[in-house]
């Protein structure tokens, strides 16, 4: 049996550990909730992580395209990019898949053929990890641009359309007055 077949066989166990690994980065009460409920509307974080990782695992085995992989990474990373995580903590789970796979494949990895295939898969996981940073940065850039354009796109734009831009600044606090 080749590596792909073995991984397909053990998928359930590996993906379960993978999901738990991510969900356990949340405090106890929260992770309990995220694991407990399947409803994607009541529990979007838990269900996005479960579905996302399941799909990513399949994508890895099937050799899905870069675009497809990024699309699958996006929902999971997008959530973690606005939560209380350092960038490394937000995307750590991708590279950790290597560890989980090795744990579950202790016996098989001894075989030469599998060892070669595994090295290849691990390189792919490394690549995926780099894609994770691209997605993460993309999310942060969106956040920054939303922040930067906030005033401009709403109030300023409306005033500009009406030709009334001159005095807008006067009503806000002077620069340096905001306690930031």
């Amino acid at each position: 049996m080749g590596l792909k077949a073995i991984l397909q066989q053990k998928k359930k166990a590996i993906v379960k550990d993978w999901i738990d690994l991510v969900i356990d980065t949340y405090p106890g009460d929260s992770s309990k909730f995220m694991k407990s409920k399947g409803d994607r509307f009541a529990n979007p974080v838990g269900s996005t992580i479960s579905q996302g990782l399941d799909a990513l695992f399949d994508g890895l085995l099937n050799g899905d395209s870069r675009e497809k992989m990024m699309d699958m990474l996006d929902p999971v990373v997008r959530i973690r990019a606005v939560q209380d995580f350092a960038p490394s903590q937000a995307v750590f789970f991708i590279i950790y898949l290597k560890k989980l796979i090795r744990e579950k494949l202790k016996k098989e990895t001894k075989k030469d053929k599998i060892a070669d295939e595994l090295a290849e898969l691990e390189f792919k996981i490394d690549e995926l990890s780099l894609l994770g940073f691209d997605v993460y940065m993309g999310c942060k850039e969106t956040l920054f641009s939303i922040k930067a354009n906030q005033e401009k796109t709403k109030i300023y734009k409306a005033f500009k359309r009406a030709g009334l831009v001159t005095e807008v600044e006067e009503i806000g606090p002077e620069p340096g007055e905001l306690n930031i």
Partner: peptide
Amino acid sequence: YFIGTGDPKNM
């Protein structure tokens, strides 16, 4: 806020 942040103090 709890659902989205995963912070128990937002329960």
